[in-house]
Simulated assay, not measured.
Amino acid sequence: MVVILSISQNINCISDSAFAPTEEEGLFPNPIACGTDVHKVPYCYESVKHFNLKDVTKECCIVLVGIPEDCFAILFPMRFTYRMALTATCKLLGITKL
């Protein structure tokens, strides 16, 4: 659908930019932007990705809980499983704002 839409815009020279993604609010999340905050905390992403939850820190919890759901889905393929494990780990660390 996205390919058809982009071809349609290029062929018809549609000047309406309602479907064109903007920098801040695009149609699809930017995977590079999704990973930048997560990779600021050392070993945060790797610890959660490999279920080494004993290595997850409070700072890691705050960063991962704060990312948007679409970015979370890009970073973690089984987002519901990872979200439940992360939520339980963060609660054990004393972070209640989830």
Rank of each mutant, 00 (worst) to 15 (best):
P29M: 11
F76K: 00
E59C: 01
R83I: 00
T57P: 06
L64E: 07
S8V: 08
S47H: 08
M78K: 14
L5D: 12
S47D: 06
C44V: 02
A73L: 10
P29C: 15
T81K: 05
C71P: 01
T36A: 15
E23L: 14
L64V: 03
P42H: 05
A20W: 09
R79V: 13
L92Y: 03
M84W: 04
C71F: 04
P29F: 12
F80L: 06
L53C: 04
M78W: 11
E69G: 04
F72I: 01
Y45F: 15
L93G: 02
K58M: 05
F72L: 09
E24Q: 15
I7E: 12
T96I: 12
Q9H: 12
Y45E: 13
I74H: 08
C61M: 07
K40L: 12
N52E: 13
L92H: 02
K49T: 05
A18M: 02
A20S: 10
I32M: 13
V56F: 01
V65G: 07
E24G: 15
K58T: 04
P21K: 06
T89F: 01
S15V: 09
L92K: 07
P29V: 14
G66F: 03
V2H: 10
S17I: 00
E69L: 11
V3L: 11
M78Y: 13
M84Q: 11
D37G: 15
T96F: 10
N52Y: 12
I7R: 08
K97M: 09
R79I: 08
I32D: 13
M84G: 01
T81Y: 04
L93R: 04
R79W: 11
Y43I: 06
A88I: 08
L93A: 04
A18D: 08
I7T: 11
I4H: 00
I7D: 12
K40T: 07
L75E: 07
D16V: 03
L27E: 13
N12C: 08
P21A: 05
F76S: 05
Y43Q: 11
P31T: 10
A88P: 01
R83Q: 07
K58Y: 05
K54D: 15
I4N: 02
V41K: 03
D55I: 00
N12S: 08
E59N: 06
E46S: 14
L98G: 02
K40Y: 05
T57H: 01
I11D: 06
E46H: 13
R83S: 08
K40E: 13
L64D: 00
C34P: 14
L75S: 05
E59A: 07
H50E: 13
C60D: 03
E23N: 12
C60K: 00
P68R: 04
V48Y: 06
F51K: 09
D37R: 06
T87H: 10
V48D: 05
L75T: 01
I14T: 11
A88Q: 07
P77V: 03
T96M: 11
E46T: 07
F80N: 05
D55Q: 09
K58Q: 08
F72D: 02
P42L: 01
K54Y: 07
I14D: 14
G66R: 06
I67H: 08
